[in-house]
Amino acid sequence: MSAKEEILSRITSALRDAPTPGPVPREYRTVSDMPEAELIELLVDRLEDYKAHVDVVEAADLSATIAERLKDASSFVVPHGIDGTWLADAAPAGDARRRIDAPGAVLGVAELDGTDAVLTSSAVSIAESGTIVLDGSGDQGRRAISLVPDHHVCVVPVSSIVRLLPEAMQRMDITRPLTWISGPSATSDIELERVEGVHGPRQLDVIIAKGL
């Protein structure tokens, strides 16, 4: 008997006297109706609690804010699908600081390690827990680019913010490679006190963009 057959047979035998469980009650909150201004306020509060830096800007000011956040980076990586207009101020055409990661033209791990920052968009954000979800779309890139550089600048379009995790799940394609980010990398391993900054990006700047 193969290991699989044997394990399945053990389970079936173990369950022979098991009662049929009742239905799963789903009385928890799955929908909400929070006005946009309050959603933004809640998300900002949660992200700042995690020690992320947060800007809330109009779409027209996005490019200038990105430039401000990236001004100290001697180099930064962007995924191939990023909106070019976002970079109008930070990296006008031909700027040597900008490195593009694209399918077929990926940056090596060493190159990413030698890059100061990364700029991505995001797929959906959960205000109640301060969580930003990246799903590997063209404007977010493959997982390595938002991981290896030490400084992550992440744009959150206001239209992608929801209050509750169940609302966010409805917007996620679960089979994509997903990364849920709630603040910069942190640890509670020493005396169960949280300190920010271990292996992931130690600096997380979030730019919440209205009108997007």
Binding site: R176, P177, L178, T179, S185
Partner: peptide
């Protein structure tokens, strides 16, 4: 996350489904 580290959400959660070409 609320039961383990007492956080609203842990800093990172990764989800993957088999192999994604060109990523990971």
């Amino acid at each position: 996350p609320r039961s383990s580290t007492g956080e609203r959400m842990n800093p990172y959660t990764s989800l993957w489904t088999g192999v994604t070409e060109g990523d990971g």
